[in-house]
Each structure stands twice: as C-alpha cells, then as structure tokens.
Nucleic acid binder design. Structure first.
Lengths: 193, 193, 193, 193
DNA sequence: GATGAATGAGGCTTCATTCAT
DNA sequence: AATGAATGAAGCCTCATTCAT
C-alpha cells in the first residue's frame, strides 16, 4: 500500500495461504449448507474447515458474502446457459422451460437456499440482489423471445417468474412434494390468457 | 343437563376473565405475527397483551397451539367455502380457481405464515398438520370434480398443489412480486395433460 | 379428642366438606410423595386431589405443614412404639435396635423424605422441628436405658444418632445401597467405648 | 516448533488468558459452592469470576464438569492417600479408619457436596461416576486388607460403605451434628458380626 | 493474517404464590 | 370455602461477533 513499486496498484494480491484458506472455507461451507442449511452456525463452518471463526469473518464479513461465494460458480453457470439454450433449442419456450429446469435443479440441491432467498431478512439482502441481478436479465431474454414468438403470454415479468420458481423450490426435500412438477405447471400456465 | 337451554352442560364454562384474556392474547399475537412474523418472542406477545408469560403458556402450551388458534376462524371459513363454491360456480374448475384465490388472500395477509408452513421445523409440525388436515380434503374435492369434468389434468394431488400455492405466497409483501398472479399461472397450468 | 363435649371450644369446627377435602389432599400428597418425592409441584398435588391450588394453601400454608400432616400418623406410631419396645424387649439395646429398624422402615418407604429432613432449607425448618421434637425424646429414653444397662457407650446423644440414621436412609432406593445394613453397622458401633 | 525448549510439541498449549480464566472460574465456583451449594446459578458463578456465562460453558460444558474440576485435586489426593496409609499404618483397620477420616474431612468442608453426591438427579450422574470410580477401588483395597487381617466383617462392600460415609456427611454444618463421630461409629460397627 | 476465547444479549420454560371470581 | 387464572422471578443455554494474543 505504501510501496511505490506496488505490483497491483489497486488491490494487494492475496497471500497464498489466505487463498488456500478461502477455498477450504468455501468447501466446508458448501458441505454444511447441504446438510444443515445456509443458516448453520458460523462456528460449525469454522470447525469443519479447521480454522478459527475470526478467519471466516475476515474473508466473508457477512453471511451473505459467504453464501454468494459458495454458489457463485453455479450461478454463473446457470446464467451462461441461458443464451446457449436459446440458440440450441427448438423454440424459445422450450429453451425457457429447459433453463428453468436448470435453475430448479440448482436450488433443490441446496437445502434451505430457496427459503433464504425468499426471506426478507436484512442479513440476506445482498444475496438476494446478487441472484436476481445475475439471473433476471438472462430470464428476461428467454421470456421475451418466447413472447415474441407468440408462445406465451406477455404480461409476466422475468423477476416475478423467477421468484415464483424460487418459492416453489422451498421445502423440496419433502417426499410429498415435487418442486419440479409444480414448476412445470407454472411454466405451462404461461401459455394461456 | 335437563335444561334445554343449557349452553355447555358437561364442561365448566371458562371464567369470564380467562376468556377475555384469551381474546386479548389472540389479538396481540395476531398483531405481532403481522409485523414480526409468527416466530416473535413469547415475551413480546405477553407484553403486548399486558399479561405475564405464564399466561400464554397456560392458554397455549406450544407456539403451534397459539398460531392455530389465531388462524382457526379463517381456516375454518376457507374450508367451508370449498363445497359452497363447488355448488355455486359455473364449473368445477372455476370453483377451484376461486377457492384457491380465497386461500391466497388468507395467506398473503399473514406475513410470515406461508413461510412457516413450509418450514420443516418440529415446532410447527402441529400447525402444519392442522392446516393440511383441514384443507387438503376440501381441495381434493374441488380438484377431483374438475378432473371428472375433464377440465384439468389428473396427475396432480391436492396436497402437492396446496403446498405449491402456499409456497408461492411466501414473501408476498414484496412489491415486485404478486402471489396471486403466480398462483393464477399455476392453476392455469393444470389444464392440458 | 374423643370427648363428647366440644373438642375445640374456641375454634369454629371445620365444615364437613373442608374436612373431607383435607383428607383427599393428604391422600393425594402421600401418593405423590412416594412417586415423585416431597418436592413435587403443588399443582400436581392439587390436580391429583381434584381441587384447586388455592385449597392446598388454605389448608396447609407451607409445604412443611403438608408434609407433617401426611406423616403425622406414622410419626406418632413410631413415637409410641418406643416405650412399648423398651418394656417388651430382652434388653434396652435390643429395643433400641428394633426401634431404629422401625424408623428406617418408615423413612426408606418415603422417597425423598430423608433427604428433605437433612436439608437446611428454611422451607423445611418446621418439618425438621416436628420430627425431632417428637422422636428425640423417645430415642433418648431408649439410649439412656441402654447406657445405664452398660450395653452401649455413653458419649452419643439421641439427636445426633437420629440424624445419622436419617442420613443413612437418604437414597435408599438405589439398588447398590442398603440403608438398613448401614444403620445396623451404626448401631453396632455404639457398643465399645 | 524447531526450538528444543518447546514445552508441549503436540497439543497447542492453552492460551495464557484462558488458563488464567479457568483458574478464576474454579476459584469462584469453589467459593460459591461453599456458601450456596453446588447448585448455585451459572450466572452467579460467572458474575463472581467476572466473566460472561458463555465462558463457563466453554470451559465446562456441564455443571458436573465444573464440579469435578473444582474437586479433582482433592479427590486425587484422597485416592493417593489410600495405599500410603495402608503401608504406614499399624494395621489395615487403622489405615481404613484414617482414610475414612480424610474422606470425611474433605466432604464436610464442601457444603452441599455430600448431598449432591446422594442425589439421583441426572445432572450429577457424571460427578457421581467420577467420585465412585476414583475412590471405590481405593476403599476396596483398604477394606479387603482389613478383612484378610481378620479385623472386620467380610459382608460389606466398599461402595456401600462409601455411600454410607457420604450420607453421614450430609448436613455436617449443623452444630448439633458431628459427622466424624457418626462415621467413627459406623467404622467401629464393622468389627463385629 | 490467523486464532479462538470471551462476551452477553436473547429466547424458552417452570412453578410458587397471590387474588379476583 | 374453593377455584384456578395470572403473575413474574429464576434458571438454562446458544451463538453472532469482537478482540487480545
């Protein structure tokens, strides 16, 4: 910071051990999120990662930061799949349906993630913003194409649709409930009216 | 016992003050459920009602008992509306759609109730059971009638549908989200095989 | 007590229902003391007796009063057995040993009573006083006779001995412990000086 | 790590402040156990030690852990005294008597400890187990030696004897009661039969 | 940078006791 | 007299977060 030869003028590059730690933390958190939900105690994550709790706070000041980091790769993958599907599918509606399926697959394998996305708890505001900010534009493109192709009604917005899909994925672990079927119904419902 | 006008011959009627207190409690709880969700601390409810915490435990041994009591009237009303709509509506499907609308109206005006219904927290098991036990049969009747009339697909069960509807009502207070529209989509999606 | 004339000229005689209630209470308390110890919640006793808690407090202002009342008959019986044994036994020491046996029988069949007798909790002061006041003189007579007969050492006081016996009866329900054997040891130890 | 003076190479040594705190806690607990018994509220101990309640739970997850830690030194001392007395005393019986005296000294200076040892409260199971596990073997050795020397009767087991001794130490603070004298009686009583 | 010890607010629940009905 | 509703003090325990080492 005070060195005139500073290699990266803006950000100091992370030390190797810090980077290693960060990955360890992400792995531990991901594992615990699956088994205990994203509200698992910080100490449990620290213990699983073999670090102190302070280390978590250094790398991820808020829980939302940690959750975002854990799922960033998959969210990115989902976002990138949108345009790809649009160009490879038989119709925009088919692409929309397939893309929605990917999103459902992602959410339903993350115990508790869907629930937290729908919470209006301040703690998760940033998480919320990240998810929608990254995925709404993708969904909008798919939806618009389907509308323009005359396949679906035009009065639904992508953001709302995504929230609906997200909501339907809450509690997907219940054996008496099948989120995918419900989402299929929802997407099917886009066709009339 | 011999008096034809005897209101409650067997059970001792509740003392007037106790009944008053119970109502005060229900009102306080209902108000706090709206502003702070159904997980609001017991002490807050007691404070708002102007009673001691023990009084709450006397009337409602578990939190689920309290929540059920708060919403009982409306759940009963919703349950009773099912058969009525079936006989008064133009078609079973129309009745189903209207009934679903009532359910959505109920849920979306109870901040946090839909969320708690989807929680798998043990604390709410009884609540869960009460809601489903009371409403699933009603929904089943409506759905079956619509299936028999050939209006909707036959592979969806009432319980699943209700959970879907319930899920879509989570976070309905968000201005960017309209639970009713999403539920309409879902019900719409029931048509077609 | 059996006097045909007014038994208590000053106090208003108890109403029949009050007397009946009192007995019901004693029975209920006795039963619960056996199964749950003498510290069982007041409400449990009231419930078992089918009365309100207030009724208990009216009849027995403190818990000690209730305990004393419950055991009065047996304590009296034990007290009266002392002189009887002294005159019927082969020797004062034999009488002392037998009498101690009666006391042990009494205590060990009252789950928790021995413990509460040894507590220095203020709540039980009166209980304490009653037991000792009634039984110490009896024990003193037995012990003195044995001392005078040259059968046991003379430096032990009845009160102390009774407390020792009482202590040894604590936890008598434990299968690895036999209060009677320990008390035998203690009494045996009185010989020699 | 490469320092030849490294004190504990494998286990991370406790931080100095933690160790200090632990001692402070033990001291505070010991003091309060004396004045208020071992069931004194956790918050009181924390307050006396000048720490938060969480600190107590960190160091001693259960109350039994805390009690054991408080008395560990003295229990160990008592346990170690057994064999020593056996080899230095004039006779096994004399050793037994002396050892019992040590045990009594220990218990009678710990207000409420004897009582809790006799409680069948689950909370104290571990405490119980620790005491008996550590001291019964010692007592067994002493008792067996005395039996083999023909000094005492052979039908009493160490565990039972220890419980008896423990029981006699309950309420030792009462000026009208002398636990030591009662225990002497008990040990004396071992000689016949 | 990393650690993990300490903090202490915050929630739940039980019961002895009082007192309006 | 009897009732039992209401009170509210007490205790327990968990965890997010800070900060000395």
């Amino acid at each position: 910071m005070t060195d005139i030869n500073e290699p990266t003028p803006t950000a100091t590059p992370k030390r190797a051990d810090a980077r290693r730690n960060e990955q360890t933390l992400l792995d531990a958190a991901a594992a615990l999120f699956v088994t205990s939900g994203v509200e698992v105690p910080v100490r449990d994550i620290a213990a699983k990662a073999g670090v102190g709790t302070g280390t978590i706070y250094r790398h991820f000041p808020t829980r939302a930061d940690l959750i975002i980091a854990v799922y960033r790769h998959q969210v990115e993958g989902c976002a990138e799949a949108g345009p790809a599907l649009l160009s490879s599918s038989a119709s925009p509606y088919a692409a929309l349906r397939q893309w929605t399926g990917l999103f459902v697959d992602f959410l339903t394998t993350k115990h508790g993630l869907a629930a937290v996305l729908r919470t209006d708890n301040d703690e998760f505001k940033a998480l919320h913003a990240y998810f929608l900010g990254r995925l709404v534009p993708v969904c909008t493109a798919l939806l618009s194409a389907a509308v323009e192709a005359g396949e679906v009604r035009s009065d639904i917005e992508a953001q709302e649709l995504m929230r609906g899909v997200g909501s339907l994925c809450i509690g997907a672990s219940d054996p008496h409930y099948n989120a995918r079927r419900m989402v299929d119904l929802l997407i099917n419902g886009l066709r009339h009216g």
